[in-house]
Design a binder for these strands. Sequence first.
DNA 1: TGACATACCTCGGACATCAAGGTATAATCT
DNA 2: AGATTATACCTTGATGTCCGAGGTATGTCA
Lengths: 113, 113
Amino acid sequence: MSKIDKSLLSGSTSMLVLALLRESDKYGYQMITELALRSDNTFELKEGTLYPVLHALEKDGALKSYDKQAPNGKTRKYYSITKKGLELLDEKTEQWNTFAKAVNSTLMVKGTV
Amino acid sequence: MSKIDKSLLSGSTSMLVLALLRESDKYGYQMITELALRSDNTFELKEGTLYPVLHALEKDGALKSYDKQAPNGKTRKYYSITKKGLELLDEKTEQWNTFAKAVNSTLMVKGTV
DNA sequence: TGACATACCTCGGACATCAAGGTATAATCT
DNA sequence: AGATTATACCTTGATGTCCGAGGTATGTCA
């Protein structure tokens, strides 16, 4: 439903990807559809955004990839999160919580609570 | 304290500015110090970011500005939020809530509560 | 006098997002 | 059989945001 300003997404994309992979290994295309599904289409992550992010995370050692044949014959590139990736996720989650709290308290300047 | 990834801020800057101005008219320099204070230094809005944002919001009709002499002799440029700005703030706030909810639900994929 | 705080501003680089394009295979529709 | 759609990967170029670094100017304080 609700389309949100894409710029809000900025910086949180890699966090969301890491969060998805903490659950289980996934391949790129799957992450896009899953994110859209779970967020009720709030996130419509684009391929042009995701793939570079995945490559960067892998280069940083936060992810590892392996190819796997799908039942339909297509080759899928699965990603799994590493120990380093889990640590990065923790960091980013903490930052997110701090950020969200600060935004909310700023938005409520009217003291309306 | 906690420095957060500046990219998280992306897109929310104008929302925060509008929120501050909903409370009362303020001048640029003041917004920077107030935001830092209120957010416990989570937001360290830079001048190079703020001033262009203010100019853009004014150009869009969301803000109006007027000069006012400060007791210390310096001329301050105060901004006040317009009806259009209030509507914009409502929009952005709603988007923010949607976004934050979606992020949180994605982060909790483990079902850990 | 020099240093610092206040108060405004702009420019250029760095980075993230995404539209648009590309490649290739398989399934489905006409 | 041919066309379209879905799956699945990728890159490039344009755009937009943020900020470091610089500039201007006034007032205060040592």
